[in-house]
Amino acid sequence: MTTPMVKFDNVTKRYGSLTVLDSLNLEIAPNEKVAIIGPSGSGKTTVLRMLMTLERINDGVIYVDGEPMTHMEKNGALVPASERHLRRVRGNIGMVFQHFNLFPHMSALKNCMEAPIHVLGLPRVEAEERAAELLDMVGLGDKKGHYPSQLSGGQQQRVAIARALAMRPKVMLFDEVTSALDPELVGEVLQVIRRLAKEHSLTMLMVTHQMGFAKEFADRVCFFHSGKIAEQGAPEDLFNNPREERTQQFLSAVLEAG
């Protein structure tokens, strides 16, 4: 068996006395596309944020590409990772946020150049070339000089995707990336993600409420409930024949809401 690209090994996350994720075990293969669904507050965002190192975990270990990320090896034992170790491993991962989080004082092009220049050390010309290519790919070749405030939500989210891709991550995280968009703008963003999934060898984790999209996009769907994976499986199975009652309830509630 190949080494998993991402592995949560008994990961627990607490906020005070509230246990948000309870001994999570999850392995994601290289190039696998995983959709994460579940009711609000079930811990979906927290899974992505821990993987992006935006949250410290309380227990367990997260591995990325076979290497511990939250910890590092020291004299044969695992000790909590230093900032330096986190910086190195985090380079494998990119994230797209619900509210885009573009840098408002930089043009679309500059948004996509900042990290490649200062983190990867690319020469400016090369960083600009790469940024331009990626903006072309997300269909914004004619908006390179525009600032975020001059772009629609859908366009901003596409810039955010290009910005994350500019760092050449192996794993891409998407947290409800269409939830903040007007309905007519959802399609253009999903279209970009669809293309990414088809044309790039990327491991993708996507938290979504778009069941239709999850079905066509994902190799596997994980249904989260109260900080645990209540059920997981291939989309056809999980959507058409959910075994767990909680899954059935959730799916019928979502379908009813449309």
């Binding site: 992006m52 935006l54 946020f97 989080n101 840098f103 900042e114 200062h118």
Partner: peptide, 25 residues
Amino acid sequence: RGQWEASTALNLSPYITFRDIIIPQ
């Protein structure tokens, strides 16, 4: 906070984050 988080997600160092992202805003 999203600006700090985006900076972390892009792996910008604390120095670059302050200089290029946070202070200009």
